[in-house]
Amino acid sequence: MNTEETIYKIKIILSLKKLLENGKKLQKEIKGNKIVYSYHGVASSALLRKATINDTLNGHTSPKAVTLISIVEGMGFTMTDFSKEFDHISESEIEIYLNDHK
C-alpha cells in the first residue's frame, strides 16, 4: 500500500472512530435512541457482521464504498458528517495513529 493510500485508510479509521465517540455522547443526551454505539450495535444497525466493523475500525481492512456508507448510516450519521470529520483529521493525528500502531 502506498503512502497516500495509507493516509486515506488512517483518515477513514479516525473519522469513523470520531463518529462512534460522537454517537456515544449523543446517546447519553437523547432518550429513546435506538442506535447503540458499540461495534455490535453498529453492525446490527448497518446489517453487517461485527467482524467487518471490528476489522474496519481497527485498520485490518479498508472498507468498500458501500460498506463505508452502511457503517456511517448505521451509526445514524450522514456521509456529510463523515466527510467533515475526514477533512478535519490533522497530520499530527495521523502521526499519532502511526506511532501507536507500529
Results as ranks from 00 to 15, higher is better:
91 E>L: 13
88 H>E: 02
25 K>C: 00
47 L>K: 13
78 T>G: 00
63 P>T: 10
68 L>A: 11
31 K>L: 06
96 I>V: 09
42 V>A: 00
79 M>A: 14
97 Y>L: 05
30 I>E: 14
101 H>C: 03
39 Y>G: 00
57 L>A: 09
4 E>A: 09
12 I>Q: 05
20 L>I: 03
68 L>W: 15
1 M>Q: 14
42 V>R: 01
55 D>R: 10
50 K>Y: 13
76 G>H: 13
81 D>R: 00
54 N>A: 04
80 T>V: 07
36 V>I: 09
3 T>P: 02
30 I>Y: 15
56 T>H: 06
99 N>F: 13
4 E>M: 11
1 M>W: 15
91 E>W: 15
63 P>K: 04
10 I>P: 04
30 I>D: 10
25 K>E: 02
32 G>K: 15
81 D>C: 01
24 K>W: 14
52 T>F: 09
49 R>T: 05
14 L>I: 10
17 K>F: 04
28 K>C: 06
85 E>K: 05
75 M>Y: 02
27 Q>N: 10
43 A>S: 03
46 A>Y: 11
82 F>M: 03
45 S>W: 14
3 T>F: 15
68 L>P: 03
29 E>I: 10
45 S>F: 12
91 E>K: 11
57 L>E: 11
7 I>F: 12
83 S>C: 06
76 G>C: 05
72 V>Q: 00
80 T>W: 05
95 E>G: 08
73 E>D: 04
97 Y>K: 02
41 G>H: 14
31 K>H: 13
40 H>E: 03
80 T>L: 02
50 K>N: 05
54 N>D: 02
90 S>C: 02
86 F>W: 14
8 Y>C: 04
86 F>R: 04
97 Y>G: 02
41 G>C: 07
23 G>N: 04
80 T>S: 03
20 L>Q: 01
38 S>K: 06
1 M>G: 14
40 H>D: 02
82 F>D: 00
4 E>Y: 11
24 K>Q: 11
98 L>W: 08
93 E>S: 14
79 M>N: 07
68 L>S: 06
72 V>L: 01
2 N>L: 12
102 K>S: 06
71 I>L: 04
17 K>I: 07
16 L>K: 06
72 V>S: 02
